Simulated scan of single mutants.
Amino acid sequence: MKTIHVRNSLLTNSSVEFLVNSYEIGTIIKCEFLTRGLNDTYSVFTESNKYIFRIYRKGWREKTDILYELDAIKHLSEYGCRVSIPIKRKDGKWLSEIYTPEGTRYGVLFTFTKGDRPEINKENCYLIGKALGNIHEASDSFITNHKRNFELNFLHLVDEPMSLITPTLQKFMKNSKDSFLNQIITNIKFDIVGKNLEYGFCHGDFHNFNMHLMEQKIEAFDFDCCSIGYRSYDIAVFWWNLKQNYSNVENQCWDEFLNGYLSQKSISNDNLNVLLKFVTLRRIWLLGTLLKNDDVWGTHWINKKNLDNFLTQLEQDVEKF
């Protein structure tokens, strides 16, 4: 009989409720599945509070990666950054081991970030930039014994994604764009390597979908993509978000974001001058991530039209380098 393999199981609400009984949070009223992405997220309600329970996907993050992330979040909280923090189990452990058909997965309970996703306007973008500046400033002293299995460097942002993008373009574009894309990457690498860029802890996915605003204060969550890496990339992710989702207010909001960041942390001209190039790398990383995780996003979107749109965005970036 052929063995059946499972890539990514989904736990029932009742199973999650059983798991979160291992935490000292009071009487649990209910657990609700919230969203599926690169990890599975559930809302947990008690008589007095709300929490978030995240179950990390098998093969996406290893145990040491998760412990690195939690150490970083705890460090930031201790240094005054507003972040959603992990909660220990009754047995003193940070991780809940979950035995699923695809193998051992890990769950973490986090505090719930109150407020709402910040609207994109000049005032809020200043606060968002300020929050990222605080994170970078506070994390300069971060150390941990846990290993992160990737850094936000060329290997992770370009080389690994391109191993998936190249055959996809060859399939749908018949090699017509290979030289164009390879030349862009070669030029970006050459330009970045020649500069003295800041390298340190990064959130990795810092945009308004991964934070809430309450009483004019930003609280960040979802550090799943954090690691050490190019700080210019971490800053550029927000610019990418503006270009992708809020192009009508891009210029004014980007200026305010930078003003907010610079109010908390200085940045050299070398770092500022390569930000648009890191927007391009963000586009490459994202496409590679979508292709790699087809069990999350499917394959229906992989077609010539969407690939053309990706290449057009890169062309528009290059025009402004």
Results as ranks from 00 to 15, higher is better:
143 I>Y: 14
154 F>M: 11
187 N>M: 10
74 K>Y: 07
137 E>D: 12
93 K>R: 15
112 F>P: 04
170 Q>G: 09
70 L>S: 03
155 L>Q: 14
72 A>C: 15
84 S>E: 03
151 E>N: 12
139 S>K: 03
93 K>N: 15
106 Y>S: 00
133 G>C: 09
75 H>G: 06
167 P>R: 11
185 I>A: 03
177 K>D: 10
106 Y>F: 11
135 I>K: 03
144 T>A: 06
70 L>R: 04
108 V>P: 01
125 C>Y: 08
64 T>A: 06
128 I>T: 03
88 K>T: 10
146 H>P: 01
184 I>S: 04
162 M>R: 09
139 S>T: 11
63 K>P: 00
179 S>K: 15
132 L>S: 06
65 D>V: 00
78 E>M: 14
102 E>F: 09
109 L>H: 00
75 H>L: 07
158 V>R: 04
72 A>W: 11
141 S>D: 12
150 F>N: 00
117 R>W: 09
174 K>N: 14
74 K>W: 04
143 I>P: 01
186 T>S: 13
98 I>Y: 02
149 N>P: 04
96 S>A: 13
149 N>K: 08
103 G>V: 12
147 K>D: 07
109 L>M: 11
105 R>N: 05
74 K>H: 10
79 Y>V: 04
90 K>A: 06
184 I>Y: 10
180 F>K: 13
119 E>G: 09
117 R>S: 12
115 G>N: 10
128 I>R: 02
106 Y>M: 00
179 S>Y: 13
73 I>W: 00
92 G>Q: 08
120 I>C: 11
188 I>F: 13
